[in-house]
């Protein structure tokens, strides 16, 4: 299985990838991770390739071979779409980061509805207000944990919920564990709500 994680610097993409990778290792699943992160500055494109089981060969996922995209930002999701199989699950935090470069006209940030439309044309997309839910559980810093909860509830990963929670616990300061668990649960609930919604609309 191949998973792509993406966002902008400061989103916690690298940390989140490591959490999943560590959880996989706990569950005895073969794992390899390739990452690209920029320099010290924030706000740049960040992407990591997580490869599980028999796909854990080289650290890079070939084009159109990924099963899941965990995207922390809509434009970044669109940027990585070329790695996805048709119908791959996309879990998307709908919080945009429009850089000052776009406000200055140095680059162009597309309309969010256009981004969603393009992704929806080929993928199975779940969009969640992860940043908002993270703020609800204490701080926007936990956006990644909300996303992890959502991913876990989707049952797309071959990794157990317990191992994910353990891996989170091993990565956060003791005082923050409770709020992180809360963030994780809000993520799970967001996925379930989304599922119900889809069923209603269908």
């Amino acid at each position: 299985m191949n998973v792509i994680l993406c966002g902008v610097g400061g989103n916690g993409v690298v940390l989140t990838t490591r959490i999943i990778a560590e959880a996989a290792l706990r569950d005895g699943i073969k794992v390899r991770v390739g990452e690209v992160h920029g320099l010290a500055m924030r706000g740049g494109t960040v992407v990591s390739h997580l490869r599980l089981g028999s796909d854990a060969k080289g650290v890079l996922v070939p084009l159109r071979k990924a099963d899941i995209l965990l995207a922390f930002e809509p434009l970044e999701a669109l940027r990585q779409m070329r790695f996805l199989k048709r119908g791959a699950k996309v879990i998307l935090n709908n919080q945009t980061y429009v850089g000052v470069d776009a406000h200055l006209g140095l680059s162009k940030y597309p309309e969010v509805c256009d981004i969603l439309e393009k992704i929806e044309a080929a993928q199975d997309i779940v969009d969640v207000p992860a940043s908002r839910l993270a703020i609800e559980s204490g701080s926007v810093i936990m956006t990644n944990v909300v996303m992890l909860g959502c991913l876990s509830a989707s049952k797309e990963l071959p990794i157990s919920r317990d191992s994910l929670i353990d891996a989170i616990k091993s990565r956060v300061p003791p005082l923050m564990i409770d709020s992180n668990i809360k963030a994780f649960e809000l993520g799970e609930k967001a996925f379930q709500d989304w599922e119900k919604n889809v069923v209603c609309q269908a």
């Binding site: 920029g38 070939p62 159109r64 434009l75 779409m81 680059s107 393009k118 992704i119 080929a122």
Partner: peptide, 20 residues
């Protein structure tokens, strides 16, 4: 794998962020 229609359209919409 070829990047077929929806993928190519998505690529077209993507822009590079200018670092700062």
């Amino acid at each position: 794998e070829d990047l077929t229609e929806p993928y190519l359209e998505a690529q077209e919409l993507v822009s590079q962020r200018v670092p700062s």
